[in-house]
């Protein structure tokens, strides 16, 4: 098994999601390499509607593999400005490119200074 990666150009949440700021100041959110590895082949993702608002620590989506259904816990509070429509037909992008094409949603953060953890802290947690 190839080693799981946790790029340090973004912020993390203990519940296995990341957030990375886009050029327009919004935040792109997705699941970590560790999470996709645990889930196995993703076969469906139940994404929220644009405009929906989620508080940090709340689930914004259900990610289904043949094995499990897992909630996606948002790492930052905010309102959804866009969902990744490509996941409707190709949810496996979450497995193949969790930090890129497999992003879940883009949000406008309520407070960009909300507490999160670093890549190193997240790595320490999942490898403990």
């Amino acid at each position: 098994m190839s080693e799981l990666k946790y790029p340090d150009d973004r912020r993390y949440h203990a519940e296995h999601l990341w957030a990375k700021q886009a050029a327009d100041g919004s935040w792109v959110i997705g699941i970590t390499d560790f999470a996709q590895d645990q889930l196995g082949e993703v076969i469906f993702i139940d994404l929220p509607e644009a405009g929906a608002h989620f508080k940090q620590g709340i689930s914004c989506a259900e990610i289904e593999s043949a094995k499990v259904v897992s909630p996606a816990i948002v790492p930052l509070s905010g309102a959804v400005v866009e969902v990744n429509a490509a996941l409707n037909d190709t949810p496996e992008l979450v497995n193949s490119d969790p930090y890129g094409q497999g992003w879940l949603i883009r949000i406008k953060a309520d407070d960009p200074n909300e507490a999160t953890i670093t890549a190193a802290q997240y790595k320490a947690q999942v490898e403990a």
């Binding site: 082949e41 076969i43 469906f44 043949a66 499990v68 259904v69 949810p91 496996e92």
Partner: peptide
């Protein structure tokens, strides 16, 4: 087979998801 023929299964699953049930360990 849901692994070997995953494209076929995944499409079938997405199209019929509401009629398919999952036990505590998956589909």
């Amino acid at each position: 087979d849901f692994k070997e023929d995953k494209d076929i299964f995944n499409n079938y699953y997405r199209a019929n998801r509401s009629s398919i049930y999952r036990n505590p360990e998956g589909v």
